[in-house]
Computed example of a mutant assay.
Amino acid sequence: MVLWVFGYGSLIWNPGFDFDDKILGFIKGYKRTFNLACIDHRGTPQHPARTCTLESEDEAICWGIAYCVKGGLEKEREAMQYLERRECEYDQKISVDFYKDGNSLEPAVTDVLVFVSTPDPVGNKYYLGPAALEDMARQIATASGPNGYNRDYLFSMEKALSNISHEDDSIIVLADEVRKVLGRSTEKKVTGSDVPLKSHTPAVHISALPEGTVAVST
């Protein structure tokens, strides 16, 4: 058997598992959003981070990396165990067609696994839903957790997409807004409740995922 996994978030720059091949390409009908909560990597239950998921949109395409794991059931099992720990906030695993640049009609690979989240704030406790750009940016600018700052996750994604020459306009807009929030925070004197980052340092004492788990997403 051969396992294919599509990375559209942090898996692009930090896959974290043993794979045999990777292909740059895209999937159809999905767009990135920052509508999912992260409470154990770059956020806390008291101050959730925002992390990336995919949501359906008919004409959308999403660029990323497809990773191939082959070499037997044990190697595939190890990869899946790692991914399921890492992607614990995603409640769905779906199969999609994956396309390479230059051929948008014929899939390069079928049945590629993708971790996504149900966009339902009632049935999915991790789904935050959309928010105003400035509100979302303020949340990302100030959230932090055991694995670091939420903003660094966003900036790493922006850089990774640039490195594969397929920038996502929505990510660029959000990252620029976060920089504006950070710029404003450094222009004023920081006192009392205006110290959002340091206020979350106790969060390192919350129960975290098993060792080896890193910031999600995919």
Score class of each variant (00 low, 15 high):
residue 215 A to H: 07
residue 14 N to F: 08
residue 24 L to Q: 13
residue 50 R to C: 10
residue 102 G to C: 03
residue 136 M to V: 02
residue 22 K to T: 14
residue 75 K to C: 03
residue 78 E to R: 12
residue 38 C to L: 07
residue 146 P to G: 00
residue 191 T to E: 12
residue 2 V to F: 06
residue 20 D to E: 14
residue 116 V to W: 01
residue 202 P to V: 07
residue 153 Y to V: 03
residue 33 T to Y: 12
residue 9 G to K: 04
residue 217 S to H: 08
residue 5 V to W: 07
residue 37 A to L: 15
residue 204 V to D: 11
residue 121 P to C: 13
residue 214 V to Q: 11
residue 73 L to P: 01
residue 108 A to S: 14
residue 168 D to M: 01
residue 125 K to P: 02
residue 57 E to S: 15
residue 122 V to G: 04
residue 130 P to F: 04
residue 199 S to K: 11
residue 108 A to I: 02
residue 138 R to W: 03
residue 186 T to I: 06
residue 189 K to W: 03
residue 26 F to A: 10
residue 6 F to Q: 10
residue 175 A to H: 01
residue 191 T to C: 02
residue 173 V to Q: 06
residue 122 V to Q: 14
residue 39 I to T: 15
residue 6 F to V: 09
residue 125 K to V: 12
residue 172 I to W: 00
residue 108 A to V: 06
residue 171 I to R: 01
residue 179 R to I: 05
residue 166 H to L: 01
residue 132 A to G: 11
residue 187 E to Q: 14
residue 44 T to V: 11
residue 35 N to S: 15
residue 136 M to F: 00
residue 54 L to P: 12
residue 110 T to D: 08
residue 85 R to T: 13
residue 207 S to C: 13
residue 30 Y to F: 15
residue 22 K to A: 12
residue 92 Q to D: 09
residue 173 V to T: 08
residue 2 V to Y: 06
residue 5 V to L: 11
residue 84 E to Y: 11
residue 61 I to E: 14
residue 53 T to D: 09
residue 168 D to I: 08
residue 29 G to K: 14
residue 131 A to E: 14
residue 152 D to A: 02
residue 127 Y to K: 03
residue 64 G to F: 07
residue 6 F to G: 10
residue 80 M to G: 01
residue 5 V to I: 14
residue 98 F to I: 10
residue 31 K to E: 15
residue 55 E to H: 13
residue 9 G to Q: 05
residue 55 E to I: 15
residue 23 I to D: 08
residue 146 P to M: 01
residue 191 T to N: 05
residue 169 D to W: 00
residue 18 D to R: 12
residue 107 P to Q: 12
residue 48 P to Q: 11
residue 54 L to R: 12
residue 90 Y to A: 12
residue 184 R to P: 00
residue 91 D to H: 06
residue 151 R to D: 03
residue 78 E to N: 08
residue 140 I to L: 03
residue 101 D to A: 13
residue 92 Q to I: 06
residue 173 V to P: 00
residue 213 T to P: 04
residue 124 N to Q: 04
residue 156 S to F: 01
residue 128 L to S: 05
residue 80 M to N: 03
residue 148 G to Y: 00
residue 16 G to Y: 07
residue 109 V to A: 01
residue 40 D to W: 13
residue 81 Q to L: 09
residue 76 E to H: 02
residue 3 L to N: 03
residue 8 Y to P: 10
residue 156 S to H: 05
residue 65 I to T: 09
residue 213 T to Q: 08
residue 155 F to V: 05
residue 79 A to W: 02
residue 15 P to Q: 11
residue 164 I to G: 00
residue 66 A to G: 04
residue 116 V to A: 09
residue 6 F to P: 12
residue 174 L to T: 05
residue 162 S to Y: 00
residue 70 K to Y: 06
residue 113 L to A: 05
residue 118 T to I: 02
residue 172 I to N: 03
residue 180 K to E: 09
residue 121 P to A: 14
residue 112 V to N: 07
residue 122 V to E: 15
residue 171 I to G: 01
residue 163 N to W: 00
residue 152 D to N: 09
residue 130 P to D: 13
residue 29 G to R: 15
residue 7 G to E: 10
residue 52 C to G: 03
residue 25 G to I: 13
residue 153 Y to L: 07
residue 111 D to Y: 02
